[in-house]
Simulated assay, not measured.
Amino acid sequence: MFNDSGPRRSGANETAMFINHDHRIVFLHIPKCAGTTVRRPLESLNQWDESGPHWRREHPELGFLDFAHLPLAVLRNHFPAAFASVLEYRSFALVRDPYSRFASSVSERLRWNGGVLPARLSRAELKKSLDTSIDYLSRPDSPSCCLPPGYIHFQRQRDYIVLDGEPVVDAVYPVERVARLREELNACLGADGMKLTESTPAAIHANAVLMYRYAGLRRAHRVVAPVMARLRRVLPASASRRIDDWMYVHRDQCARSLFASDYVRDFVSSYYADDVELYARVVRASGGEREQ
Rank of each mutant, 00 (worst) to 15 (best):
P236T: 09
G288L: 06
A280T: 09
S5Y: 11
R290A: 14
S138W: 12
I19L: 13
F64C: 06
E176K: 11
F27N: 00
R120I: 09
S286V: 02
L217T: 10
F102R: 08
P149W: 13
R39A: 14
D66W: 09
P53S: 13
S85I: 02
F267I: 06
L62K: 10
V162A: 03
R56Q: 12
A82C: 10
W55S: 01
D22N: 13
H29D: 15
I25T: 08
S144V: 15
S5H: 13
E184G: 02
R284L: 03
D262I: 06
D22L: 04
E61M: 10
N113K: 07
R90W: 01
L231P: 07
L130A: 03
A84Q: 12
D275C: 13
R251M: 15
S238P: 06
R90I: 00
V283R: 04
G287H: 02
D131I: 09
V178F: 06
S129N: 14
D22Y: 05
Y279Q: 03
A215D: 15
P118T: 04
A73Y: 03
T36Y: 07
A239S: 14
P53I: 07
E289W: 04
F67P: 01
D4Y: 12
V234W: 11
G114M: 03
A82E: 06
Q292K: 14
D244R: 07
V282F: 08
R156F: 01
F64V: 09
V86Y: 01
L258T: 06
E61P: 02
R109M: 11
A285I: 05
R56A: 08
S144Q: 15
L121H: 02
I134A: 04
I161N: 00
R39F: 05
L42S: 02
G193S: 09
D131V: 11
V162C: 07
R242Q: 11
A179N: 08
S100Q: 07
V168P: 05
Q253Y: 05
P71W: 06
P80F: 00
S261I: 02
P53C: 03
L45T: 10
D192C: 08
A34D: 00
T200S: 15
H250M: 09
A179S: 12
A103I: 02
N113C: 12
D192L: 08
Q155M: 11
S107F: 10
P140H: 14
H221K: 04
G11K: 10
A237S: 13
A255W: 02
G150Q: 12
V282L: 07
M228Y: 06
R39C: 13
A215I: 09
Q157M: 15
F154D: 06
A202F: 14
S51K: 12
